[in-house]
Amino acid sequence: MVLIYALNGLYFSAFLFLTSLGLSIILGVMGILNLAHGSLYAIGGFVGAFLIGMMTQSPVPVMLFVAVLGAVAAAGAVGFILEITLIKHMYRRALEYQLLITFGILMLIEDSIKLVFGGESRYASAPFDAMGSVDIMGHTYSTYFLLVMAAALAAGILIWWVMTKTRLGIMLRAIEMDREMAQAMGIPMRSLTIVAFVMGSAFAGLAGVLVVPTTPAVMGMGMDPLIMAFIVVVIGGLGSLRGALLGSIIVGLTRSFTVAYFAELEMPLLFLIAVVILIIRPEGLFGQK
């Protein structure tokens, strides 16, 4: 059973990694803690569930592909609109305003989802059911979970490649290190912050769509992942890729094993880990001061 718990833990980790990646990018590049990140995740979930529900006749790969594309595009588009209308005014504002505007956006999006999709839950388990399960050393394990792990791995490699090997990523990291200096060097701040915000939002949407085949899309579905992503970002370090990866693995495995052995302790233990790390290393495991 330990193997299954470990696999489950890795699945949680994969999922957390996708969620926290976007939060981490936005925090790193823009210095804004986006409280509405969970709501962008929910947009991804609802759009994905809607699309899967529309295409019950299509083959599973097509269904998944369209759902993922639609959800990522929707979350990215909403992120784009938010950035150019609201967030762009916030870079020079005090912390309380930055946090409160994203808190306002959270309320706005939650109710807009209700307005667009209705308040009821949406089930979209077709891809999960159709993919069946595989046999891993005598245990049956859902193929879909493996797919999510692969997707997270691919997303991680992609973002690592973009951040280290491309011009775009190098400019983004320059902004992260020193805003003023980056601006002085002629880096186009305005368009790059938009890119970062859209990228972060799109990742939230991706995480959202990947979860709906396993659990239905419900109102407030983004709240728990948001808090989990906070914990991951806190453990890993604000705005660090390696940190997000390591943080996800720590949180995912801890969660899976505590759920298995002492289910009651799951959430308290995670917050405790986050708090302890914040106390001894406030910048996180891989963060810079």
Partner: peptide, 14 residues
Amino acid sequence: YWMLILGATLIFLV
């Protein structure tokens, strides 16, 4: 949709 009103008010305030 009361959260819409509260959220919009908050954004307006900020």
